[in-house]
């Protein structure tokens, strides 16, 4: 009984503190594109696939624009739904607008690790028929940061 009350009190104060913290420094908690890049760089190095020059916007652009095989027939490319020009809004196959992929147009992209991972997982499997490598993810984000 006593333990339970204590736990509730602790949880409550933690939430309170969390609320204050998130109010004061949202950006720090939510992460940033640089943090995402750092994470993918570490993963790529661990997998031994990180090239000498690091991530490349050029490779990211090629990945983004290419027609891939192996994925689902309805979605051969990123540009099935996103625009070739990533500063333009895309459209899902059901007709919903997608905010531009370019960081300059949609500054809150590539900051929430959970969200970024969810979409890489889904969309790489839809388009490529497999999950993307940390190198591909890093190249992709590097390209979008440059736009």
């Amino acid at each position: 009984m006593k333990k339970a009350t204590l736990a509730i009190a602790l949880a409550g104060s933690a939430m309170l503190l969390g609320g204050v913290a998130s109010g004061t420094s949202t950006a720090a908690l939510a992460g940033s594109p640089q943090e995402m890049l750092k994470r993918y760089a570490e993963e790529a190095k661990a997998a031994g696939i990180m090239p000498e020059g690091g991530f490349s916007a050029e490779r990211g652009k090629a990945l983004y624009l290419a027609d891939h095989k192996g994925g689902k027939p309805a979605t051969p490319s990123c540009t099935t739904c996103h625009m070739k020009d990533p500063t333009q809004p895309g459209r899902t196959r059901t007709g919903k607008l997608i905010k531009p992929m370019a960081l300059s147009k949609t500054p809150d992209r590539y900051s929430d690790p959970e969200k970024v991972e969810k979409w890489f997982f889904r969309n790489c499997r839809s388009v490529l028929g497999r999950e993307c490598t940390p190198l591909e993810k890093g190249d992709f984000i590097t390209f979008m940061i440059s736009q």
Partner: peptide, 12 residues
């Protein structure tokens, strides 16, 4: 969801 009308829409 892994084949949701032609797309992968997997959710944890």
């Amino acid at each position: 969801l892994d084949d949701h009308y032609g797309e992968d829409a997997s959710i944890d």
